[in-house]
Amino acid sequence: MIAVFVFDPPSQVERFFTPELLAELRRHVEIDPELVLTAYEGPALARAEILLTGWGAPPLDARALEAAPNLRYVVHTAGTVKWIAGPEVFARGIQVSSQAAANAVPVAEYTLAMILLANKQVWQLSRAYTESRRAPGLDTIWSAGGNASRTVGVIGASAVGRKLLELLRPFDLHALLYDPTLGSADGLEAELVQLPELMARSDVVTIHAPALPETHHLVGAEEIGLMRPGATLINTARPSLVDQDALTKAVARGRVYAVLDVIEPDDALFTLPGALLTPHVAGSVGTELHRLAAGAVAEVAGIAAGRPLRHAVDPATLHLKA
């Protein structure tokens, strides 16, 4: 079978695919690692049966599909494919695969780390220690929360949300879950509750829901007002899920804390000691990119062997994904 890379910029291929992974890929399909398309055009596209796509790949619109008459599979080396694979792709019987499950792993790991640190009030104690250059007294340290018997609220049983619940199992933490698409939380080891109850009972609230019109400002001023004083809100999903103005005001008052890996541009957040901001690093970076590529290579190997896709995208539920 003939496969073609579609990455923009093309240098991403070297970041994702180690020499060993490229060699394994070439065992199963005909592919030129030096040929990386940034647009759907040219003779290579016309011959391609498999497209290996990555971040920055353009949408596969009707014009692109006309230029790829032999295309049968799209193997995406990242998470969501909503912006690549529209209805036209599935209408033509093209099968699409995503590495959303693999990309969920580092996001869940990041979130777990932040939960454990937030419950021990690490940032507050670190800031006080750094500024005073004196260790706080034992009374201060011993009153710094802790992780025993604390409650974590997970918003969204997405791939990341489910992976996080799995990672939480060894810890002495009680998990609450809000997801209006679920009838029960069987197998998730979480207590399924409504959003107001989750906000009110949780020591840490973490968001893993998709960005949809109906989830815009899912966590708004009312929900933030329900949070326990000193509780922490974590967002690694999309900025639109949170009313950032309401959150900024609550953090500025010292009522709650925030860990935000995604934000709308807002200089005020950068000045708040109660907000920990990270530059969208929860997802795959560094060696974690190789895990995405390895999953894509395994998918291609299965295609070449005539097996069904392991991580097929269902067009019927694609609109519900992040």
Rank of each mutant, 00 (worst) to 15 (best):
H311Q: 08
W142F: 14
G306E: 14
I31R: 10
W83H: 14
F7R: 04
I94Q: 10
H216M: 14
D61P: 11
S143L: 02
V193N: 00
K249P: 02
E41K: 08
A282S: 15
A252Q: 06
L226E: 00
F17A: 07
H217N: 07
S97M: 08
R27G: 10
P58D: 09
F270I: 05
K321D: 14
L22W: 11
Q12Y: 15
T111L: 07
P170Y: 00
L138E: 15
M199A: 00
P59Y: 08
S240Q: 14
A246R: 04
P59L: 09
N235L: 03
A135Q: 07
A246C: 11
A258Y: 00
G56K: 14
A298F: 12
A298L: 14
A293L: 12
P273Y: 01
R169Y: 02
P315K: 10
I207C: 09
A159V: 15
F17I: 00
A185F: 02
D314K: 11
G93H: 13
L182H: 11
R169W: 02
F7H: 13
L320N: 04
A185T: 05
A209I: 12
S126R: 12
Q95P: 12
T317F: 13
E223C: 05
A190F: 01
G161E: 10
L60A: 08
A159K: 15
G42D: 06
T130N: 13
A221K: 13
A44D: 11
I263L: 10
G42K: 09
A113H: 13
P180S: 14
D261T: 01
L195P: 01
A67V: 11
T38F: 00
L212S: 06
L177R: 01
